[in-house]
Design a protein around this nucleic acid. Sequence first.
DNA 1: GCGCAAATGTTTCAGTTGCAAGTATCTACG
DNA 2: CGTAGATACTTGCAACTGAAACATTTGCGC
Lengths: 143, 143
Amino acid sequence: MDYWFTDSLPYLLNRAGVALGETFSRRIARYDVTLPMYRVLAILRQTGPKSLGELSSLVSVEMSTLSRMIGTMAKAGQVTRIRPPENGRVVSIEITAKGAALADELMQIAMQFERGILGDMDAAAAEELKTLLRQISQRIDRL
Amino acid sequence: MDYWFTDSLPYLLNRAGVALGETFSRRIARYDVTLPMYRVLAILRQTGPKSLGELSSLVSVEMSTLSRMIGTMAKAGQVTRIRPPENGRVVSIEITAKGAALADELMQIAMQFERGILGDMDAAAAEELKTLLRQISQRIDRL
DNA sequence: GCGCAAATGTTTCAGTTGCAAGTATCTACG
DNA sequence: CGTAGATACTTGCAACTGAAACATTTGCGC
């Protein structure tokens, strides 16, 4: 046997991802923000308005799910939906001042969290890890 | 700004994990097996019978969800639930011959899939990546 | 310009999930 | 022994999800 499932990339990736996600979710739960919501806030905050479709692929969430999520975030005053006059099909999602403030606060927590995880890990190794993860995503998209 | 969300570890990890999972799921869909089911089969196949609780933590799935999943897998004749006489609380999940054959077939696909992903990536780099992922999981469990 | 296909979101509905409560078994302690 | 508490799993129920149907807008071919 030259293949060990528990040494396979998808398994290890899923395991680490779920563990990270659960832990971080608990840490931001008191803000009444779920992890995917945080991702939306962070991306809007750092890269400006996005259409639903763009957001969907950026945060890896189904568009129908995201549509509803944006609805509740809009109700909470964190984002707004805008129909740009130049293209009535698209919905541009923009972050509000309130949402931006929240995003800033949460990103502080995320920074600390990531530092805690990478901790004493070699900085170069961490960078290498990230590069590999990016390569993997790209490779799959192209597959 | 010294923090870029889309360069953060949880984001990259989730992105790669979701992409990998979706692609592989599609590839095994014709066997009527979901990705978590495949994980259960592969683990049982390679490491022998496990209790529900053990399986739950190994495949990162809630026990209640897993309990129902094992129910449908049992109906499909892939696994059996056994109450060990020496401990009536536990349910030992064992893979059947049919399940084992299926697991073998799916693991072949998984091997090819992983080779396709890692592709021309440096073997040492891939090993390093896996080591880092293991470290991250451990570090979180201990956190 | 007009009709029709494609693009982009939203809604509906059936199926799934996760939490909390329930059940069964075991263990420890008086 | 008997009973309180812990452990391991299952089930009920409300909330959530994804696929498909729907609605709206745009752009293409004629």
